[in-house]
């Protein structure tokens, strides 16, 4: 239940503090959020499968976010930032969909 608490605290923090992200980081923020969401969905599926492991989770979370931002940053430097952003979003959305489907099967057996 500590996870639900984290969710609530996170939303409240975001709404109350309204953190302003430095302009230089702004292009990477949506990508980072998608990457973080992917890690969270993967972890949720793992814990339903009973194989959750917080070490794996932390590494995949940080790794996902950093690699996604790095890929987009490199793309920006090469002038293909928009295309690479699309690629990253497509990959992560497919994974999120697949994980969400697995979670759904777990919860509703359907």
């Amino acid at each position: 239940m500590i996870a639900v608490l984290g969710l609530v605290v996170g939303i409240v923090l975001g709404l109350v503090l309204q953190p302003t992200i430095p302009a230089a980081l702004q292009p990477y923020l949506p990508i980072a959020v998608v990457a973080a969401l992917d890690a969270v969905f993967g972890a949720s599926r793992a814990l339903l499968d009973g194989i959750f492991n917080d070490r794996v989770f932390v590494i995949s979370f940080i790794g996902n976010v950093l690699v996604a931002a790095l890929v987009v940053f490199l793309g920006d430097q090469l002038g293909v930032g928009a295309q690479l952003s699309t690629g990253v979003v497509v990959v992560f959305s497919i994974r999120i969909f697949a994980n969400a489907a697995a979670i759904r099967r777990h919860l509703f057996h359907a």
């Binding site: 239940m1 500590i2 996870a3 608490l5 984290g6 969710l7 605290v9 996170g10 939303i11 923090l13 975001g14 709404l15 503090l17 309204q18 953190p19 302003t20 992200i21 702004q26 923020l29 949506p30 980072a32 959020v33 973080a36 969401l37 890690a39 969270v40 972890a43 814990l47 194989i51 959750f52 492991n53 917080d54 070490r55 989770f57 932390v58 979370f61």
Partner: peptide
């Protein structure tokens, strides 16, 4: 490796979810 397998007490999981939620809200507002 069963260390940290209990997600109910995993602070890392909660913190990561909090961070994700904060970033999400910040992005939406932006």
């Amino acid at each position: 490796d069963r260390r940290g397998a209990d997600w109910r007490h995993s602070t890392a999981f909660a913190v990561a979810i909090a961070v994700t939620a904060t970033l999400f809200v910040a992005t939406v507002l932006q």
